[in-house]
């Protein structure tokens, strides 16, 4: 116990061996609250889930983390508040959450290798990495009326002048908390907590009903 240092953290792969059945946090909702089937009408809102991605929460000093993230992900750490950065093909992202906290989202299955690589790159720097993959899921909203649905749901200003592409904020959504981000002109992403996923999904179904909604 005398030689405890940050590099002695026990890490383990949360991806199980073999090929067991895995379900997204919304699997129950899809079965019990299927979206109203489109009756050939144009859907104003398209809702998709990016299920089972790898989520890592990084905390620590910006300088040490920036170096480690550049080495392992090839993205520089967004230092400006509420900034969101993607890698070249748009699959891996890193987002400013607070002055000493960043959220990394990578394709599912990559998170454990990334965590180990980050720990190695960080060495003895004072930092923490938490694998939050099981705790949250990503919903994407697109379509002509996606912004109208957001305007009904959150008090944050989602007008393009206040919410440009490459911005992400943690804010109130309905009566829950989400991380709302704008990866492209046409798409919005909502990072929702697992325990709020069903609530947010059903809220979105209800709020989108007047425009017509298309789910998978």
């Amino acid at each position: 116990m005398s030689n405890l240092s940050v590099s002695n953290v026990r890490e383990f792969n949360t991806q199980p061996e073999g090929n067991p059945l895995v379900e997204s946090p919304l699997a129950w909702s899809y079965r019990h609250h299927p979206a109203p089937r489109g009756n050939g009408q144009h859907a104003g809102v398209v809702l998709r889930e990016k299920a089972l991605l790898g989520h890592l929460v990084l905390r620590g000093g910006a300088i040490a983390l920036d170096e480690a993230v550049r080495q392992t992900l090839g993205i520089s750490l967004p230092s400006k508040p509420n900034a969101l950065a993607f890698d070249d093909n748009g699959e891996r992202s890193i987002q400013w959450i607070s002055p000493d906290e960043w959220l990394v989202i990578v394709p599912g299955g990559e998170e454990f290798a990334l965590e180990s690589a980050l720990r190695k790159a960080l060495g003895d720097a004072h930092a923490s990495i938490v694998n939050a993959s099981g705790g949250q899921t990503v919903l994407t909203l697109s379509g002509d009326n996606a912004r109208e649905v957001l305007m009904k749901s959150t008090s944050y200003d989602v007008h393009p002048s206040a919410f440009p592409v490459g911005k992400g904020v943690t804010t109130v959504f309905a009566k829950a908390t989400v991380i709302l981000r704008r990866p492209s002109e046409t798409h919005w992403e909502l990072v929702v907590r697992r325990s709020f996923a069903d609530y947010c999904y059903r809220w979105l179904l209800d709020a989108s009903a007047e425009y017509g909604i298309d789910t998978q």
């Binding site: 959450i97 607070s98 002055p99 904020v169 943690t170 804010t171 109130v172």
Partner: peptide
């Protein structure tokens, strides 16, 4: 405290 946000 900015509890729904940066939590600072």
């Amino acid at each position: 405290v900015h509890s729904v946000g940066c939590r600072k």
